[in-house]
Design a protein around this nucleic acid. Structure first.
Lengths: 198, 198, 198, 198
DNA sequence: CATGAATGAGCATTCATTCAT
DNA sequence: GATGAATGAATGCTCATTCAT
């Protein structure tokens, strides 16, 4: 299903080279942006030869796409467990936001990479936000069914919440490096009031 | 006091050329993104010779910066009058959002241009959002003083609102081309509930 | 006889503009070299409009040529009177060299301009040195006829003397800004010994 | 210790490409001068692709600098052995001059290249002449200690001799293509008389 | 004569991608 | 698989020169 986004290494050595290329790409793209980043910058950071890049990726675009998916997967894996065990749906939402912000704090390059996807790989960009909004909407729906929030919640509310989260992360975590849980608390309060059952 | 961002034309003919270059740049950058846009693409659209570009701008970066400021100014000039004459501060906010969305609908390129400023001209990018957030915060403050919203409104609330507005504009106006006033109404309701006096 | 190297001004105002363009060109070419100099740099220094340049000169090359001739004329006019009234031919030579060096000290750009003529206007370059060498040879000839120097003086000797003078001027006057008469004295002594009658 | 003036090839093939670029540059710069020379002119002469130029040099300036040093080295290596085995210091000087002139006859471009360094790379220009003059001065010093020339020889004499040599080479070898040893003989006689012990 | 906007040929430089070893 | 030299299309920018006012 779908062409491979990168050629799969067959040896352990190859696996290590591939991983170091992805890490190097995250650093290079995060620091310079897609267009000012260079393949040679990536291979130098990875300690590999220029030509080795093409053993694993077909093009600069390909590694960028692979990186976006790699980071998406890692965020999800970081956020999901943090939401489990919350008393209610909105509590889970707050913990999820806090977990996302904490991840962004450790991986500030994620903002630049996702944002740049708008230009480099619009499909991934849309997919990323549509998937995220859809997950939020599903949780709002569940909350509505339990009477935690008003019943007319829609995708518009999901997008509004996502926009809030993204901008707060940009301003207070990426730029100002503030405490994620503090920001998450204020945001959650606004949301819960804005969506209170009526 | 500050270097000119573009050389000022001294004749009427020059004024026309400068304007057509800015308009052409908005189209070119909006369509192709900064890096895939070319000076010659801009001058061709503007009906000017390649060299004429450099009569008014020092570089590709310079026209981009000028364009960001030009668009900021135009949005502001479009939104400000729409807010006048609202019964209350939150009503003004809703009309302002609707006006912004209407502007974005006519000038969809504004999203790509502002977003790309994060990479091309980070200073303008921050300035744009910080200025916008500050204006929102001032209006919230005024609303608080009149008892229209809770008294502890802060810049965090301003950034949350801005993030909401931006993402709703992206999703429902730029991508889906929906009716701005409808989107603005739902968003405003969320805000007013989330910020209700307590 | 020969095409005009520059268009002749008919009014007093034009005469002033022409003169200021030549002076500005000397400064601009001396400071930046021919290729890095620009017409607009020249007109700006001269306080004239860009277009006015072409009222007096046909091209960048043309003003350079005009400048070389202008400076040649001025050196000659400065050096000639200094040689008059010397007791003998070699004394005249020394005084001439001192006068040339003094001129170069006041107009250091002359070196760069003449040297660059090798590339910009080879004809003027050759002409300049051939004329200068020829004048030296004629004076050596006269000195030989009076028994002041050996009788087999030739153009080789003239070129040797000229090379000496040029390099001493470059090293000690242009670069080190030393006293011209001191340098001229040592050079003259070497010459007179090297050319003593035998 | 000092940045490399050109990137060092790691393979034999690279070594060949680098050499052919330097030779091509000598021809291109010698024929057209620095500013009218083009990188593509150099690579075409070298039989290499345009981009290959930048595998070895950072810029047009860089290859020019490398070329000046390359030629300096080659002249020195050509002249040094010619001076060995002369009966006395002045004899060595004459043989050295003859060797230099012979080299210039085979590599006429050396004049244009060194002369143009005054504008393109003033540091190399000064260095070239200061080094050359210093070598002459040292030999004069040695000659003075053996009583072959007057004892008050100084750097002024060295510069005078160098100026002579350079201009004679220009006039009689580069322009007129005459026999180097004949010119060297006349020049040496002048020098030896001018510097005779007293 | 003066002015300054308009023109476009020309060129250095970058860098993703290919390929020989 | 790894290496790094070779390739060449693409484009930002300069500036002498022209020309309308």
């Amino acid at each position: 299903m779908g062409e491979a986004i990168q050629k799969m290494p067959r040896t352990e050595r190859g696996r290590r080279t591939l991983r170091s290329l992805l890490d190097a790409a995250a650093a290079e793209f995060g620091e310079k942006g897609f267009h000012n980043a260079s393949i040679s910058g990536i291979t130098t950071r990875a300690g590999a030869a220029l030509g080795s890049f093409y053993t694993y990726f077909d093009s600069k675009d390909a590694i960028f796409r692979a990186l976006v998916r790699d980071m998406s997967r890692r965020v999800k894996e970081h956020v999901a467990p943090a939401m489990a065990g919350a008393p209610d749906q909105l509590g889970a939402e707050r913990q999820g936001l806090a977990a996302f912000l904490a991840f962004a704090r450790e991986h500030k390059e994620i903002y630049r990479i996702i944002d740049e996807a708008e230009f480099v790989d619009p499909q991934s960009y849309r997919l990323h936000y549509e998937t995220t909004a859809e997950r939020i909407r599903e949780r709002l729906q569940a909350a509505a069914e339990r009477g935690e929030v008003r019943t007319d919640v829609s995708d518009i509310h999901a997008w509004a919440i996502m926009g809030m989260n993204v901008f707060l992360g940009l301003r207070y975590v990426v730029w100002a490096d503030e405490e994620p849980s503090k920001v998450a608390a204020i945001a959650s309060e606004m949301i819960s009031d804005g969506l209170k059952p009526r």
